[in-house]
Design a binder for these strands. Structure first.
Ligand SMILES: [Mn+2]
Ligand SMILES: [Mn+2]
Ligand SMILES: [Mn+2]
Ligand SMILES: [Mn+2]
Lengths: 147, 147
DNA sequence: GTTGACATGTAGCCTAAGCTACATTAATCT
DNA sequence: AGATTAATGTAGCTTAGGCTACATGTCAAC
C-alpha cells in the first residue's frame, strides 16, 4: 500500500534523524576533554603565570595520572606543548580554542543566571552543558543575554 | 603573612569548587546512558507497542551489540526488564525516569526554540545538554518557557 | 518443510577515562 | 650536604562504550 510505504519511509527518515542527534552528542563528548583542559590551562597561565600538571589535576578533580594522560592526548591534537617536567603552554590553535571556550562558558552561565538560576548551580550545569551548545544556539544565547 | 595565608586558603577553596563542578559533570555523564535508553524505550513502546533491541540500536545510532550491552547495564540499574529474545519493558522506576527525561528534554528544546534556535538544531543540542540540567535550572527554564 | 532474511547473541578487539601503587626527579629546609 | 616534601612519571588494573566477525534463533514465503 502507498500509505504503508510512506509511513515506512518517514519512519526510517525520523529514525535516522534521531540517530544523527545521538551521534552529534557523542562527537561533542569526544571534544570535551580538549576543550576543558585548554580552557583550564589558559586560566592557570593567566592567574599563576604557568600551568603545571599537578595544578591542572587539582582543578579538574582527577588524579595526576589521569591529567598526564589527558594532556598527552590534547597535545597530540595540537592544542598544547609539553615537555617532561616543564610547565605546559598552549599552541596558537590551543589559545584560540581556550578563548572560544571561555566565551561560550560565560555565555551559558549568563543565560542560566538570567533565567534565575543561582550562580553556583549555573556554573555547575554550564560546565557540562557548554559542550553541547552549537554555534547557532550560542548566537541565540548571546542575543538573549545581551538584550 | 596573613595576606599570603588568606590568599592560599581562598585559592584552595575555589580550586575545590571548580573540581566539584567537573566531578558533577562526570556524574551526569554516568547517568546519561540510562536516561537516553529509558526515554527511547518508552517512546518505542508508545509508538510501536513494544521495544525491540534492533529498533533501539537503530534509534540510538549504534551497533546492536553496543545496544545489547547498554541495555544489560540499564537493566542492572533496575530501570528495565529484559529476557532473551523478548521485547524490553520498563520497570516502575524506569517509567518514572523516562517520563522525567521526556519532560526535561522537551523543556530544553522549548528553551532553545524560544531563544530563536531552529527546531532541528534545538533538538540536536538538547540531546546532549539535557543531562547537565539540574532540577533548579530546570525549574528556571520551565518558568521562562511558560511565560 | 526448506530457504532466506532479519533479530539476537557471543567472542574478541579498541580507546578514553578513571584509579592505586610504586619509582624517580626537583625543590626546599635545616 | 643531606633529608624531607612535592611533582612528575610509569606500570598495571577497571569500566564504559564503541566496533567487526561469526554463530544461532525465529519467522514468513515459497
Ligand atoms: Mn566543561
Ligand atoms: Mn555531556
Ligand atoms: Mn540525551
Ligand atoms: Mn533526550
Amino acid at each position: 500500500m502507498s500509505t504503508k510505504f510512506n509511513k515506512n519511509m518517514s519512519q526510517k527518515q525520523s529514525t535516522k534523524q534521531r540517530a544523527a542527534r545521538f551521534k552529534a552528542t557523542r562527537k561533542q563528548h569526544r571534544l570535551e576533554t580538549a576543550e576543558d583542559y585548554t580552557e583550564l590551562i589558559a586560566d592557570l597561565i593567566k592567574q599563576k603565570g604557568e600551568a603545571r600538571t599537578c595544578d591542572i589535576a587539582k582543578l579538574k578533580g582527577v588524579s595526576h595520572v589521569t591529567a598526564i594522560r589527558a594532556i598527552r592526548r590534547v597535545k597530540e591534537l595540537g592544542y598544547l606543548n609539553s615537555e617532561p617536567r616543564k610547565p605546559i603552554t598552549l599552541t596558537k590553535k590551543g589559545k584560540k580554542l581556550a578563548e572560544f571556550c571561555k566565551k561560550r562558558h560565560e555565555l551559558v552561565v549568563s543565560l542560566f543566571i538570567k533565567l534565575g538560576v543561582p550562580q553556583d548551580i549555573a556554573e555547575k550545569d554550564a560546565e557540562g552543558a557548554e559542550h553541547h551548545i552549537s554555534s547557532k544556539t550560542l548566537d541565540a544565547i548571546e542575543k538573549y543575554v545581551k538584550s
